[in-house]
C-alpha cells in the first residue's frame, strides 16, 4: 500500500511542541482548562446533520472536555451527499465519524485511514415492519419487498443476502419518505433504531416490529472515530486526547445531564423535536448501543481484534470484498480499551 502524503495547504506549520507539552500537564489533572492559544486545533467532520446519535461528541464540546484535554475542537456537520472519507484523506478534517464497514472499503481502495475508537458497540441499523403481519423475524421477511436506500444496499444488504437468503428482487427504493410504509401494512423498511421506530409511531404505526440487525449477527462497529494513518503515526498524543475526551463526553451524555450536548443539536438542527432527542438517548441507553459488550469492562470506544477479523470475514463471505486484505491496517487498538471514564 502506498502512503501518500498530500499537501493541501492545511496549516500545520504553525504548530509548536511546547504548548502541547504544557497542555498535557494541565489536561491530565483536573486542573483548569488550558488557555485558548495553547489549544491544539482539531476538526471533526460528521458528514451528517446534528442528531443525538452524535450526542457524546457534542457533550464533550459543550462541557469543555475537549478544552480540558488541550483541544480546540470544531465539529462540522455536513450533508449526506458529501464523502467524509475523502474530506479526511485530503486533511480537510482531522477526524471523521465512520464505521468498520467504511474502514474495510477504504482498506480495499488503499486509502490510508485508521479507525481509532468505536462509540457504538452495536450498529443502529434496523428493519421495521408492521405488527401482526407475519413479519416478526428476518427469516419471515425472506422473499418479501423491502424499502431500502442505496447506502444500506452497499452495507447491510450483502449481509442479509449471505446469511438470511434475501435476494435482489426484494429491493424497493427507499427515498427517506415514510409514505410507502404507512400506506402498505405489509411493507418492510430500513431505518435507525434511534429514529424511525419513534417517528413511525408518531405517524400512527402501532408498535412496529423493530429488528436490530446487530442482534442477528451484523457485527459492524458504528459511530467510530476515524483519522489518517499519518496522524496516528506522527501525532499519537493528539489522537489519544481526542479519543479520551470523546469517551468522557459519551459517559456524560448518557448518564449525566445531556443538556449541553443537546444545545448543539438545537443550534444546528432546530427542527429535531425534544421528544425524538429524548427517545434517541433512551434507546441508546436501553439497547446498550454505546455501553455494552467490551465497553462494560474496557470503557466506551472499546474494540477487539476478533470482532474486526470476523466482521471482515463476513464481508468476504458475502462477496463484497476480496479475501486477503490485511484488516489490521484498518484500525488500531492502541487508543482504546484503557478504561477511560469507567
Amino acid at each position: 500500500m502506498h502512503v501518500i502524503h498530500m499537501h493541501c495547504g492545511f496549516p500545520r506549520s504553525g504548530r509548536r511542541l511546547l504548548p502541547t507539552l504544557c497542555v498535557l500537564a494541565v489536561g491530565c489533572g483536573a486542573g483548569p482548562a488550558a488557555r485558548a492559544d495553547d489549544l491544539e486545533k482539531a476538526v471533526f467532520y460528521l458528514g451528517w446533520r446534528a442528531e443525538p446519535e452524535f450526542g457524546g461528541f457534542f457533550q464533550a464540546l459543550n462541557t469543555g472536555l475537549y478544552r480540558q484535554h488541550g483541544l480546540d475542537v470544531e465539529i462540522k456537520v455536513g450533508s449526506p451527499q458529501t464523502n467524509s472519507q475523502i474530506i479526511l484523506s485530503l486533511h480537510k478534517a482531522d477526524f471523521i465519524e465512520g464505521s468498520s464497514g467504511d474502514a474495510v472499503n477504504s482498506l480495499q481502495q488503499d486509502i490510508p485511514l485508521v479507525t481509532v475508537a468505536a462509540m457504538f458497540q452495536k450498529s443502529p441499523r434496523v428493519l421495521i415492519a408492521h405488527a401482526h403481519r407475519g413479519n416478526d423475524t428476518l427469516e419471515q421477511m425472506r422473499g418479501k419487498p423491502i424499502l431500502i436506500g442505496a447506502q444500506a444496499l452497499t452495507t447491510v444488504w450483502p449481509f442479509l443476502k449471505a446469511h438470511f437468503g434475501f435476494t435482489d428482487d426484494q429491493i424497493r427504493p427507499y427515498t427517506f419518505n415514510e409514505a410507502p410504509f404507512l400506506r402498505n401494512e405489509d411493507a418492510i423498511q430500513e431505518g435507525y433504531v434511534t429514529e424511525e421506530p419513534f417517528t413511525l409511531t408518531q405517524l400512527g404505526v402501532d408498535h412496529p416490529v423493530v429488528l436490530l440487525l446487530s442482534d442477528y449477527g451484523y457485527q459492524e462497529y458504528a459511530m467510530a472515530i476515524t483519522t489518517n494513518r499519518e496522524t496516528v503515526e506522527q501525532r499519537p498524543d493528539f489522537v489519544q486526547r481526542f479519543v479520551d475526551a470523546s469517551i468522557e463526553g459519551w459517559y456524560s451524555y448518557l448518564y449525566q445531564d445531556p443538556t449541553p450536548g443537546n444545545r448543539f443539536i438545537r443550534e444546528n438542527n432546530p427542527d429535531l423535536s425534544e421528544a425524538l432527542i429524548s427517545y434517541s438517548i433512551r434507546t441508546m441507553r436501553e439497547q446498550g448501543m454505546v455501553d455494552s459488550g467490551d465497553a462494560k469492562q474496557l470503557g466506551i470506544g472499546a474494540m477487539n481484534d476478533e470482532r474486526w477479523a470476523s466482521f471482515y470475514q463476513s464481508l468476504v463471505a458475502a462477496g463484497v470484498v476480496p479475501q486477503g486484505l490485511d484488516i489490521k491496517k484498518a484500525y488500531t487498538l492502541k487508543f482504546v480499551n484503557r478504561k477511560v471514564g469507567l
Binding site: N105, G149, A150, L153, D168, I171, Y174, T175
Partner: peptide, 18 residues
Amino acid sequence: GTGGQGSGLAFRILEAGY
C-alpha cells in the same frame, strides 16, 4: 437508488461512491 439485477449505471455510481 435501487440495486441488484435491475440497477442502471446511476446506482453503480452511487455504490462506487459509498
